[in-house]
Amino acid sequence: MYSIGIDVGSVAAKAVIFDGKNVIAKKMIPTGWSPKESGIALYNSLLEHSKIDKNNIRMIVGTGYGRIALPFIDHKVTEITCHGKGAHYLDADIRTVIDIGGQDSKVIRLDEDGNIKDFLMNDKCAAGTGRFLQVMAHALEIDVSQLSDIGRGAEPQNINSMCTVFAESEVISLMASGASKESIAAGLLQSICKKTYSLVSRVGAESKVFFSGGVSKNLLLREYLSEKLGVEIITSEQSQFLGAIGAAVIGFKK
Protein backbone atom coordinates (compact mmCIF):
# COMPACT_ATOMS: atom_id res chain seq x y z
CA MET A 1 0.00 0.00 0.00
CA TYR A 2 1.03 3.56 -0.68
CA SER A 3 0.18 7.09 0.28
CA ILE A 4 0.42 10.21 -1.82
CA GLY A 5 1.34 13.66 -0.58
CA ILE A 6 0.54 16.57 -2.84
CA ASP A 7 1.70 20.10 -2.11
CA VAL A 8 0.22 22.77 -4.37
CA GLY A 9 2.20 25.92 -3.73
CA SER A 10 1.92 29.34 -5.32
CA VAL A 11 4.65 28.65 -7.88
CA ALA A 12 5.13 24.88 -8.05
CA ALA A 13 2.97 21.83 -7.38
CA LYS A 14 4.85 18.89 -5.92
CA ALA A 15 3.72 15.30 -5.29
CA VAL A 16 5.32 12.14 -3.94
CA ILE A 17 4.38 8.49 -3.47
CA PHE A 18 5.43 6.94 -0.19
CA ASP A 19 5.52 3.23 0.66
CA GLY A 20 5.83 3.64 4.41
CA LYS A 21 9.60 3.72 4.27
CA ASN A 22 10.77 5.43 1.14
CA VAL A 23 9.67 8.04 -1.33
CA ILE A 24 9.36 5.90 -4.43
CA ALA A 25 8.27 8.53 -6.94
CA LYS A 26 8.14 12.29 -7.08
CA LYS A 27 7.06 14.90 -9.56
CA MET A 28 6.92 18.68 -9.79
CA ILE A 29 5.12 20.94 -12.24
CA PRO A 30 4.47 24.71 -12.33
CA THR A 31 1.20 25.55 -10.57
CA GLY A 32 0.10 27.91 -13.31
CA TRP A 33 -3.16 29.76 -13.04
CA SER A 34 -5.36 26.92 -11.76
CA PRO A 35 -4.25 25.06 -8.62
CA LYS A 36 -7.10 22.59 -9.19
CA GLU A 37 -6.15 21.66 -12.74
CA SER A 38 -2.44 21.52 -12.07
CA GLY A 39 -3.17 19.40 -8.99
CA ILE A 40 -5.17 16.91 -11.06
CA ALA A 41 -2.58 16.86 -13.87
CA LEU A 42 0.19 16.30 -11.36
CA TYR A 43 -1.67 13.46 -9.65
CA ASN A 44 -2.37 11.69 -12.95
CA SER A 45 1.14 12.05 -14.26
CA LEU A 46 2.62 10.87 -10.97
CA LEU A 47 0.54 7.69 -11.14
CA GLU A 48 1.43 7.16 -14.75
CA HIS A 49 5.12 7.79 -14.18
CA SER A 50 5.28 5.43 -11.18
CA LYS A 51 3.09 2.77 -12.81
CA ILE A 52 1.30 2.27 -9.53
CA ASP A 53 -2.32 1.24 -9.60
CA LYS A 54 -4.77 3.76 -8.18
CA ASN A 55 -6.33 1.01 -6.06
CA ASN A 56 -3.11 0.56 -4.15
CA ILE A 57 -3.16 4.14 -2.94
CA ARG A 58 -4.57 4.11 0.55
CA MET A 59 -4.57 7.78 1.35
CA ILE A 60 -4.01 11.10 -0.41
CA VAL A 61 -3.16 14.13 1.69
CA GLY A 62 -3.14 17.63 0.20
CA THR A 63 -1.23 20.62 1.48
CA GLY A 64 -0.05 24.05 0.36
CA TYR A 65 -2.22 27.03 -0.42
CA GLY A 66 -3.94 25.08 -3.22
CA ARG A 67 -5.03 22.23 -0.91
CA ILE A 68 -8.56 23.55 -0.72
CA ALA A 69 -8.91 23.28 -4.51
CA LEU A 70 -8.15 19.55 -4.81
CA PRO A 71 -11.26 17.39 -5.24
CA PHE A 72 -9.50 14.00 -5.08
CA ILE A 73 -7.74 14.19 -1.71
CA ASP A 74 -8.81 12.36 1.46
CA HIS A 75 -7.40 14.88 3.92
CA LYS A 76 -5.94 18.31 3.95
CA VAL A 77 -3.23 19.33 6.37
CA THR A 78 -1.51 22.71 6.53
CA GLU A 79 1.92 23.11 4.97
CA ILE A 80 3.29 23.99 8.40
CA THR A 81 2.51 20.59 9.91
CA CYS A 82 3.56 18.85 6.68
CA HIS A 83 6.93 20.59 6.57
CA GLY A 84 7.51 19.53 10.16
CA LYS A 85 6.72 15.90 9.44
CA GLY A 86 8.65 15.96 6.18
CA ALA A 87 11.76 17.31 7.88
CA HIS A 88 11.46 14.75 10.65
CA TYR A 89 11.23 11.98 8.06
CA LEU A 90 14.39 13.19 6.30
CA ASP A 91 16.38 13.60 9.51
CA ALA A 92 14.92 13.00 12.98
CA ASP A 93 17.49 15.39 14.49
CA ILE A 94 16.05 18.43 12.72
CA ARG A 95 14.65 20.92 15.24
CA THR A 96 14.18 24.00 13.07
CA VAL A 97 12.82 24.32 9.53
CA ILE A 98 13.22 27.53 7.57
CA ASP A 99 10.96 27.35 4.55
CA ILE A 100 10.95 30.04 1.89
CA GLY A 101 8.53 29.38 -0.91
CA GLY A 102 7.00 31.38 -3.71
CA GLN A 103 4.77 33.60 -1.62
CA ASP A 104 5.49 32.90 1.99
CA SER A 105 8.28 32.23 4.37
CA LYS A 106 8.01 30.40 7.64
CA VAL A 107 10.05 29.12 10.53
CA ILE A 108 8.97 25.96 12.31
CA ARG A 109 10.35 24.58 15.57
CA LEU A 110 10.05 20.83 16.09
CA ASP A 111 10.30 18.46 19.03
CA GLU A 112 11.99 15.04 18.98
CA ASP A 113 8.93 13.45 17.42
CA GLY A 114 8.55 15.98 14.63
CA ASN A 115 5.60 17.71 16.29
CA ILE A 116 5.30 21.47 15.93
CA LYS A 117 6.47 23.36 19.02
CA ASP A 118 6.15 26.83 17.54
CA PHE A 119 5.95 28.49 14.16
CA LEU A 120 5.92 31.90 12.56
CA MET A 121 4.86 32.95 9.09
CA ASN A 122 5.57 36.19 7.26
CA ASP A 123 2.68 38.61 6.98
CA LYS A 124 0.66 39.03 3.85
CA CYS A 125 3.29 40.70 1.66
CA ALA A 126 5.80 38.98 -0.60
CA ALA A 127 8.85 40.55 1.05
CA GLY A 128 11.65 38.06 1.44
CA THR A 129 10.01 35.27 -0.57
CA GLY A 130 10.69 33.54 -3.86
CA ARG A 131 8.40 35.97 -5.63
CA PHE A 132 10.61 38.84 -4.44
CA LEU A 133 13.68 37.16 -5.97
CA GLN A 134 11.83 36.42 -9.21
CA VAL A 135 10.84 40.05 -9.65
CA MET A 136 14.36 41.24 -8.84
CA ALA A 137 15.99 38.70 -11.15
CA HIS A 138 13.69 39.91 -13.89
CA ALA A 139 14.81 43.50 -13.27
CA LEU A 140 18.43 42.33 -13.56
CA GLU A 141 17.55 40.41 -16.74
CA ILE A 142 18.80 37.12 -15.35
CA ASP A 143 17.11 33.89 -14.31
CA VAL A 144 16.32 33.53 -10.62
CA SER A 145 18.55 30.43 -10.52
CA GLN A 146 21.58 32.55 -11.51
CA LEU A 147 21.36 34.95 -8.55
CA SER A 148 23.54 32.83 -6.31
CA ASP A 149 26.37 32.30 -8.81
CA ILE A 150 26.37 35.89 -9.98
CA GLY A 151 26.36 37.34 -6.47
CA ARG A 152 29.10 35.11 -5.09
CA GLY A 153 32.24 37.02 -4.16
CA ALA A 154 30.71 40.43 -4.83
CA GLU A 155 30.50 43.22 -2.26
CA PRO A 156 26.72 43.39 -1.55
CA GLN A 157 24.92 46.64 -2.32
CA ASN A 158 22.79 47.90 0.50
CA ILE A 159 19.14 47.41 -0.46
CA ASN A 160 16.85 49.08 2.03
CA SER A 161 13.35 48.43 0.73
CA MET A 162 11.72 45.22 1.82
CA CYS A 163 8.60 45.80 -0.25
CA THR A 164 8.89 43.99 -3.59
CA VAL A 165 7.61 46.99 -5.53
CA PHE A 166 9.88 49.55 -3.85
CA ALA A 167 12.89 47.23 -3.95
CA GLU A 168 12.47 46.85 -7.69
CA SER A 169 12.65 50.65 -8.09
CA GLU A 170 15.68 50.65 -5.83
CA VAL A 171 17.38 48.00 -7.96
CA ILE A 172 16.64 49.96 -11.12
CA SER A 173 18.12 53.11 -9.54
CA LEU A 174 21.20 51.18 -8.48
CA MET A 175 21.69 49.87 -12.01
CA ALA A 176 21.30 53.40 -13.37
CA SER A 177 23.93 54.65 -10.95
CA GLY A 178 26.34 52.08 -12.34
CA ALA A 179 26.30 49.41 -9.63
CA SER A 180 27.28 45.97 -10.92
CA LYS A 181 24.78 43.18 -11.40
CA GLU A 182 26.96 41.04 -9.14
CA SER A 183 26.82 43.49 -6.23
CA ILE A 184 23.06 43.98 -6.62
CA ALA A 185 22.44 40.22 -6.70
CA ALA A 186 24.49 39.82 -3.53
CA GLY A 187 22.64 42.76 -1.94
CA LEU A 188 19.25 41.22 -2.72
CA LEU A 189 20.23 37.96 -1.09
CA GLN A 190 21.58 39.87 1.92
CA SER A 191 18.26 41.67 2.26
CA ILE A 192 16.34 38.35 2.23
CA CYS A 193 18.86 37.03 4.73
CA LYS A 194 18.15 39.94 7.12
CA LYS A 195 14.40 39.54 6.80
CA THR A 196 14.62 35.80 7.40
CA TYR A 197 17.01 36.34 10.31
CA SER A 198 14.50 38.55 12.10
CA LEU A 199 11.74 35.96 11.56
CA VAL A 200 13.97 33.12 12.79
CA SER A 201 15.17 35.14 15.80
CA ARG A 202 11.62 35.41 17.09
CA VAL A 203 11.27 31.66 17.56
CA GLY A 204 14.96 30.74 17.84
CA ALA A 205 17.09 28.42 15.70
CA GLU A 206 17.87 25.17 17.46
CA SER A 207 20.17 22.75 15.56
CA LYS A 208 19.80 21.00 13.27
CA VAL A 209 18.44 23.73 11.05
CA PHE A 210 16.94 22.66 7.74
CA PHE A 211 16.28 24.98 4.83
CA SER A 212 13.41 24.07 2.50
CA GLY A 213 11.24 25.54 -0.23
CA GLY A 214 12.23 26.71 -3.70
CA VAL A 215 14.47 29.47 -2.34
CA SER A 216 16.58 26.91 -0.45
CA LYS A 217 18.17 26.06 -3.80
CA ASN A 218 20.02 29.37 -3.54
CA LEU A 219 23.43 28.38 -2.14
CA LEU A 220 24.73 31.88 -1.47
CA LEU A 221 21.63 32.77 0.56
CA ARG A 222 22.10 29.60 2.58
CA GLU A 223 25.70 30.61 3.33
CA TYR A 224 24.67 34.14 4.31
CA LEU A 225 21.97 32.80 6.60
CA SER A 226 24.26 30.25 8.18
CA GLU A 227 26.82 32.97 8.93
CA LYS A 228 24.23 35.39 10.30
CA LEU A 229 22.54 32.78 12.51
CA GLY A 230 25.83 31.21 13.56
CA VAL A 231 24.57 27.68 12.92
CA GLU A 232 25.06 25.13 10.20
CA ILE A 233 22.13 25.01 7.81
CA ILE A 234 21.45 21.79 6.00
CA THR A 235 19.26 21.15 3.03
CA SER A 236 18.54 18.27 0.72
CA GLU A 237 17.92 17.53 -2.92
CA GLN A 238 14.37 16.83 -1.83
CA SER A 239 13.92 20.10 0.06
CA GLN A 240 11.36 21.45 -2.39
CA PHE A 241 9.34 18.26 -1.83
CA LEU A 242 9.38 18.58 1.95
CA GLY A 243 5.71 19.53 2.26
CA ALA A 244 4.61 16.76 -0.11
CA ILE A 245 6.76 14.22 1.74
CA GLY A 246 5.29 15.33 5.08
CA ALA A 247 1.78 15.02 3.66
CA ALA A 248 2.52 11.50 2.40
CA VAL A 249 4.02 10.47 5.75
CA ILE A 250 0.95 11.80 7.58
CA GLY A 251 -1.30 10.03 5.06
CA PHE A 252 0.45 6.71 5.51
CA LYS A 253 -0.11 6.81 9.28
CA LYS A 254 -3.79 7.77 9.03
Binding site: Y65, I116, F119
Partner: peptide, 23 residues
Protein backbone atom coordinates in the same frame (compact mmCIF):
# COMPACT_ATOMS: atom_id res chain seq x y z
CA UNK B 1 -2.29 37.20 14.68
CA UNK B 2 -1.68 40.74 13.51
CA UNK B 3 -4.15 41.87 10.88
CA UNK B 4 -6.68 44.53 9.91
CA UNK B 5 -10.40 44.52 9.05
CA UNK B 6 -9.93 43.59 5.38
CA UNK B 7 -10.23 40.07 4.00
CA UNK B 8 -7.01 40.33 1.98
CA UNK B 9 -5.07 38.02 4.30
CA UNK B 10 -7.89 35.60 5.17
CA UNK B 11 -6.12 32.73 3.31
CA UNK B 12 -2.85 33.17 5.18
CA UNK B 13 -4.63 33.51 8.52
CA UNK B 14 -6.57 30.33 7.82
CA UNK B 15 -3.32 28.44 7.22
CA UNK B 16 -1.84 29.77 10.44
CA UNK B 17 -4.96 29.02 12.44
CA UNK B 18 -5.31 25.50 11.01
CA UNK B 19 -1.64 24.79 11.73
CA UNK B 20 -2.10 26.11 15.26
CA UNK B 21 -5.09 23.82 15.77
CA UNK B 22 -3.10 20.90 14.35
CA UNK B 23 -0.49 21.47 17.08
Amino acid sequence: IETDYSDSDAGQIKTRVEAFIET
